[in-house]
Design a protein around this nucleic acid. Structure first.
Length: 275
DNA sequence: CACGAGACCTGTTCGC
DNA sequence: TGCGAACAGGTCTCGT
């Protein structure tokens, strides 16, 4: 899915208005089209339709990979998962393929959730903190200090790659930014979280934040047919670069599978046992 | 607790 | 050219 930088890029576009579309905050929801009702994870599609009609969107926020839209009553949460995209189109434009969930607004525009793989989730919750509270810290917030990371790493004996993907450990990293963070930190994806020396913890902390910030600067990555305007895909150091030279040392990037996810790393820079 | 397998979906790319 | 396999930015549940 879009990871933190991609979701944040979408958030900013929706909140500020882009491409001729007016900003989302202040707009009232006047119509709902559920082309794939299973998009609606809570409440039931019927209750969702009933409760969301007439509500005004107050803001567009983000927590981890969730878009968080406080409404007059309750909060709309959207998770784009692997292939989801959110965008504004003029009402009346015919639905494109995979435009499954559409909210019609009082400005003559529509908020459309396009999602080829249909993994995405939409929730309308009275108390969103119930769900968001289970997420780990925001990696770019001031709360996420080296010490917080050190304590969380030491608290468990897991391999780094799956741990970085665990949203209850830290919120917002996905397969791309986990690989990019580990490469920047020069840490092997299989290293045990409780085996890191203090300087390695510091390197991981910097690696996570630098990778995410780089993604944000480039407005996220656009891969395959899922194009969102970002160009961070042209600046990957490890992810998806199997066989290509490591930008640091020139050694070919290697691909392995960890926790059933493709994992890309430099076998020279990121050794299991530090040289 | 940590981890692997399988499920949920469609579309693209790869290999023979 | 054709066709099946592998793969894809994520998360959940189940079993060991």
């Amino acid at each position: 899915m879009p990871e933190l930088p991609e979701v944040e890029t979408i958030r900013l576009a929706l909140r500020q208005g882009a491409g001729g579309a007016p900003k989302l905050p202040g707009q009232r929801i006047e119509g709902v089209r559920l082309g794939w009702p299973r998009h609606i994870a809570a409440p039931s599609p019927a209750a969702f339709r009933r409760r969301i009609l007439g509500q005004t969107i107050q803001d567009v926020q983000r927590r981890g990979k969730y878009l968080v839209l406080p409404l007059t009553q309750g909060t709309l949460l959207i998770h784009l998962m692997m292939s989801g995209d959110l965008g504004m189109l003029p009402a009346g434009e015919p639905p494109r393929p995979h435009d499954h969930t559409i909210l019609t607004l009082d400005t003559g525009w529509e908020l459309r959730f396009n999602d080829p793989r249909k993994f995405g989730k939409v929730l309308l919750l009275p108390r969103p903190e119930q769900l968001l509270g289970g997420l780990g810290p925001e990696p770019l917030s001031s709360q996420f200090t080296r010490q917080v990371l050190a304590d969380r790493l030491a608290g468990r004996g897991r391999r780094l790659k799956p741990l970085l993907l665990d949203q209850s450990f830290v919120a917002g990293l996905g397969n791309i930014y986990a690989d990019e963070a580990l490469h920047r930190a020069r840490l092997h994806p299989m290293r045990r979280s409780d085996s890191l020396r203090p300087e390695e913890v510091a390197a991981l902390w910097r690696g996570i934040r630098q990778a995410l910030r780089a993604g944000l600067r480039h407005n996220g990555a656009s891969i395959d047919w899922v194009y969102r305007g970002g160009d961070f895909q042209n600046h990957f150091r490890a992810y998806g670069r199997t066989g290509e030279p490591c930008p640091v040392c020139g050694t070919p990037i290697q691909r392995i599978v960890v926790g059933q996810r493709s994992t890309h790393f430099c076998p020279q820079c990121q050794q299991e046992r530090p040289a």
